[in-house]
Nucleic acid binder design. Structure first.
Length: 342
DNA sequence: AAATCGTGGAA
DNA sequence: TTTCCAAGATT
């Protein structure tokens, strides 16, 4: 096969997406270096998360905390609150731990091996930061690149088993010149041309080299092993609010929604916690929520009584915003608001 | 090494 | 409506 890197880089120079955390190929050619902090922050936020969802969070975080040092000095609660709604909250916990380690060390390490020792930075992110921020010739393989490579080489082995094979093939493409732009070019190609459902092969710069296109199976790749069905779970959330306070609790630092602010709730897997308050609870319509590996039906109970709570903290209403809660708990709040309005 | 861990937009 | 899945990491 011909050397694809020059072809793809040429395409990238003309079609690179304009993203808040990106140094454009033109600016990079002028000598502008990416800020490792911004590269790292964006990569963490983008783990299993769409560009559209990340954009506003990235702008908000970099406004509040322009440097790693600033982020390292932030309150845990404020970071969790700002992360609320993005999902995968272990990322937020690891984000702070990583920021503090980096600030203490005086800056980000530049090698992939050192980067990967930091919390929240795995094989993909270490390669991405090393390539994008430091222009090291690392092979960056995310979901986009898996798809592009599977199609380019017509790899029919289903994911996730195909991963090592795809990494090895991707590695044969990585150039020594402009590896950072090349990595971003592969991801842009996967996101905009070599899309999951309907690849736009007609305008793809690599059509002539694509084995799956030749075989007429591009849209079917990559294949994936069937996923297990999601079991249904159920639980109860209690919303207690008076004229000037609402009862909230900080969830355990590990596990589902770990470290987030929430309405007190029962367990959702058999563990059965009691209501946080003796009161006359009104039952509202249940909330339906889909997590990665199960669906949840959460019954919502509401009271306007105050008093001594066995769990949670009475929080002044003026300090409370549902935007500081994870998505599930925002839905619960919406139920309560609707009930109070009617 | 298989399970766990969110959310929402698009088809 | 259902299904898919997005710049994955951790245990």
């Amino acid at each position: 096969m011909r050397d694809l890197a020059p072809v793809l880089l040429d395409w990238y120079d003309r079609h690179a997406r304009d993203l808040p955390w990106r140094v454009s190929p033109a600016a990079r050619a002028r000598g502008q270096q990416p800020d490792p902090y911004r590269v790292w922050l964006s990569e963490i936020m983008l783990q299993q998360t769409t560009v559209a969802a990340v954009r506003d969070y990235f702008l908000r975080f970099t406004t509040l905390w322009p440097t790693v040092k600033a982020l390292a000095a932030a309150d845990d609660a404020q970071v969790m609150s700002e992360w609320a709604g993005l999902g995968y909250y272990a990322r937020a916990r690891n984000l702070l731990a990583c920021a503090r380690a980096v600030a203490a060390a005086g800056g980000f390490p530049a090698t992939r091996a050192e980067l990967q020792k930091l919390p929240g930075i795995g094989p993909y992110t270490s390669a991405a930061i090393s390539a994008i921020a430091y222009d090291q010739p690392e092979t960056v393989v995310d979901g986009n690149v898996e798809r592009v490579v599977a199609r380019l080489f017509a790899v029919e082995t289903p994911l996730p088993a195909a991963k090592p094979e795809l990494v090895a093939l991707a590695d044969t493409l990585t150039p020594t010149g402009r590896p950072g732009d090349f990595a971003q070019a592969m991801m842009d190609l996967g996101a905009t041309i070599c899309a999951p459902r309907k690849p736009a092969c007609a305008i793809c710069p690599l059509v002539k080299d694509c084995a799956s296109r030749a075989a007429g199976i591009a849209a079917e790749l990559p294949r994936r092993s069937p996923k297990p069905e999601k079991p249904q779970r159920h639980g109860i959330a209690w919303v207690a609010l008076t004229d000037d306070a609402v009862l909230l609790e900080r969830r355990e630092p590990k596990g589902l929604l770990g470290g987030t602010l929430a309405f007190p709730s029962s367990g959702w897997d058999g563990t059965d916690l009691p209501a946080p308050l003796e009161a006359d609870w009104h039952s509202l319509d249940p909330v339906e929520h889909v997590f990665t590996h199960f669906t949840l039906r959460l019954d919502v109970r509401l009271t306007c009584a105050g008093g001594a709570a066995t769990r949670g903290v009475w929080t002044p209403r003026h300090e409370f915003s549902p935007l500081g809660l994870p998505g599930l708990m925002r839905k619960v709040w919406t139920r309560a608001e609707r009930a109070l309005r009617d």
